Amino acid sequence: MSASAVEPNAPTRDLVLRAPKVLLHDHLDGGLRPQTVIDLAAEHGHELPATTADELGAWFEQAADSGSLERYLETFDHTVGVMQTADALARVARECVEDLAADGVVYAEIRYAPEQHVEQGLALDDVVAAVQRGFDEGMEAAGGRILVRQLLTAMRHQARSMEIAELAVAWRDRGVAGFDIAGAEAGYPPTRHLDAFEYLQRENSHFTIHAGEAFGLPSIWQAIQWCGADRLGHGVRIVDDITVREDGRVELGRLAAYVRDKRIPLELCPASNVQTGAAASIAEHPIGLLTRLRFRVTVNTDNRLMSHTSMTDEMWNLCEAFGFGVRDLEWFTLNAMKSAFLPFDERLALINQVIKPAYAALTAELTGP
């Protein structure tokens, strides 16, 4: 059921494609074009499980569609494996911006782990510089239609989070918007990286934490109350603290109420959540309930290659599953833009000059004069 009033006319997929979108949770190493993986693998002698772009794209989707986050993460061996030189990183970053711009994304924060791209001798600074070069080239080619920033990720099973946090602060005026930790949640709580989060807070720096995807409420509680996360990467398992009674009454536990009251953004990734088993299907995804309860819901792609998805796909699937209309899509987009790790005046400019006028025009197109 739509969270807003009933839409006078349902949006078409073409309209969803043309709608401006804001993307907060997308992995650079999870969004490569299959042909690019093949090209780079040939250059660097990396063996792949398929030889054509169509076959490789299908392999990634099938391998990721396992219901296991750990199995899902194994697919990154082939993308990270070909992203070990400055030119390769710049190409992947440039193509990422091109693909997002073509999908109607006007602002994106793209995350990746610099520590995973140093196998062939690049320094961490070299990695960030190469990605920024690619982003700059992509934004220039898009003619100002999209703004992209980096999120630097530390792997939660490694011990380099302080080093990556310092890197994020060093680059924050040169294209890096914030910090993240990622990787398998079970056995690797965010509190293992408390020194990095305390450092970022002292430096007035933004950070998000992967929490509440494959692990439940304790992961979310630690990310917020111990580590001070500005946003929750996924956070879908907050639904475990919400009870829907047979009579339709909804009761929020203390943690869920806190997350909603504090307007802590949820970086929800529906297609990915279904693949990793966090939701049984799009129609059963907690985003419907969380939207109805007015949590700070945002819609994201996570890994476009592995999930064979795009922002248009994600939003269109939600329209079909929940009856969401243009006003709902605008609400998701404004939620994301308000939650971005971008200076307030820049967020406000995108909201007032790009997002709201575009949605007003799309609404008028649907409703007529």
Rank of each mutant, 00 (worst) to 15 (best):
M1V: 10
S2P: 04
A5W: 07
P11G: 09
D14P: 04
V16H: 09
L17Q: 14
R18H: 13
P20H: 13
K21V: 14
V22W: 11
V22C: 13
L23P: 07
L24Q: 12
L32I: 03
Q35Y: 08
E43I: 01
G45F: 02
L48F: 09
L48Q: 07
P49I: 10
P49L: 10
T51F: 03
T52Q: 06
W59Q: 08
A64F: 02
S68Y: 01
R71Q: 13
R71P: 00
L73G: 00
L73M: 08
T75L: 04
F76M: 05
Q84N: 04
A86H: 10
A86Q: 15
A88Y: 05
A88G: 06
V92K: 09
V92R: 09
V97C: 13
D99Y: 05
A101L: 13
D103R: 13
V106T: 14
E109Q: 04
Q116I: 03
V118H: 03
E119A: 15
Q120C: 02
G121H: 09
V128Q: 11
Q132Y: 03
R133C: 10
V148E: 04
V148Y: 04
L152V: 07
A154V: 12
A159T: 13
R160P: 00
I164V: 15
E166L: 06
E166Y: 07
L167A: 05
A170C: 09
W171G: 13
R172A: 04
D173E: 14
G178A: 05
F179R: 01
G183M: 07
E185V: 08
P189H: 03
R192P: 02
F197R: 06
F197W: 10
E198W: 00
Y199G: 08
L200Q: 06
R202T: 12
E203P: 00
G216P: 10
L217R: 09
P218A: 10
P218N: 12
I220K: 05
Q225E: 15
G233C: 07
H234D: 05
H234A: 04
G235H: 06
D240E: 11
D241C: 01
D241H: 00
T243E: 06
T243N: 03
R249W: 00
V250Q: 00
L252K: 00
R254T: 02
R254D: 03
A257C: 01
A271E: 12
A278Y: 07
A278K: 09
A278N: 14
A283K: 14
A283F: 02
H285T: 06
G288A: 01
L290K: 02
L293V: 05
F295S: 02
T301F: 07
T312P: 08
G323F: 08
D328W: 11
F332N: 12
L334H: 12
F341S: 09
F341N: 06
P343Y: 10
L350R: 15
V354L: 13
K356S: 12
P357A: 11
A358V: 13
Y359F: 15
A361W: 02
L362D: 11
L362K: 12
L362S: 11
T363M: 12
